[in-house]
Amino acid sequence: MTTPALRATGLTKVFRGEGGETVTAVDGIDLTIGSGEIVAFLGPNGAGKTTTVDMFLGLTSPTSGTIEVYGESPHRAVVDGRVSAVMQTGGLLPDFTVRETIRAIAALHGRPERVDVVIERTGLGPLAGRLVKACSGGEQQRLKFALALVPDPDLVILDEPTTGMDVGARQQFWDTMRADAADGRTIVFATHYLAEADAFADRTVLMARGRIRADGPTAEVRAAYGSQTMTLRPPAHAVGVHGIDDAWLADVRRALAPLGITDLEVSSASLEAAFLALTGEEATR
């Protein structure tokens, strides 16, 4: 049987607050992620996403429960180069060029042959000679992604990976992600862009208050918890109807035709609606 990329069982993390009270950031989650999946981690602030990701990377230890990355401890998997991360925090050396930065990290990993590979893979060729401090926020984010690919990891964990990127760079980034996943690389990303998760994640894990509230194919999460809407536009007014299926839709069209209603629009269930239903929080757009 193939070893999963990541397996968490009963994963719990408890912190002690300033007043001595205990705060449960992650509350006994079970999660298995297979190789080649693209998985979106969603949740409002305080949901436990960041703490969970930190445990995936071995940056913090669970209070209880277990976590394995390709059958090893997270720390061992990181040391072996099987896992890389692109985090929101963590700076770059501003007076290095893009190429010099990648070359330095490649030397640390003993992988000098990866320099040109990752530059091409991430579309950084035109920026290779530019100083890091002269790069935009989105360009620096692409550089961080390139650095994560240097050891040729099996699993890449990304925290808000496209922050600061323009629309074209974001599309190029996700094209690269899809190609990597097709080659067997596993992608786990936390994002506040619900539309991005909807468009690019095969699977969505939605967290709230330290627990997993939904976990499944993104389309199924969207359909199960979001409402589908049909808007009818008769000559004088519009009517909203919820819970539409294809078979009933054809009957509705025929029934309404004598009333002069010809403009009919059906909107699919949205991931945002599922987010709101499951967390009771305001979705971040």
Rank of each mutant, 00 (worst) to 15 (best):
A5E: 02
A8M: 12
A8T: 02
G10Q: 07
L11F: 03
K13A: 01
K13M: 03
G17F: 00
E18I: 05
G19P: 00
V23Q: 03
T24V: 14
T32L: 11
G36E: 02
V39Y: 01
F41D: 00
G46Q: 08
G48T: 07
K49Y: 13
T51S: 07
L57I: 07
S64M: 04
E68K: 08
Y70V: 02
G71V: 12
E72D: 12
P74R: 05
R76V: 14
D80V: 10
A85N: 04
G91E: 08
D95T: 09
I102H: 00
I105L: 12
L108M: 13
V115D: 03
T122M: 12
A128L: 04
G129I: 08
S136Q: 09
E139K: 01
Q140I: 08
F145M: 05
F145H: 02
L147V: 05
A148G: 01
A148K: 00
A148D: 01
L155M: 07
I157S: 04
L158M: 13
D159T: 09
E160V: 03
T162R: 06
G164L: 08
D166T: 01
A169T: 02
R170M: 10
Q171P: 00
Q171S: 14
F173G: 02
W174N: 08
D175N: 15
R178D: 08
A179R: 14
D180P: 14
A182H: 10
R185W: 15
R185G: 11
T186I: 11
I187S: 05
T191N: 09
H192W: 12
Y193V: 06
A195N: 09
A197K: 00
D198E: 14
T204S: 08
A214P: 02
A214C: 05
A219S: 15
Y225S: 07
A236E: 12
A236N: 14
G240N: 15
A247G: 06
A250L: 15
V252E: 11
R254F: 08
L256M: 12
L256W: 08
A273R: 00
L276G: 01
L278E: 01
E282I: 11
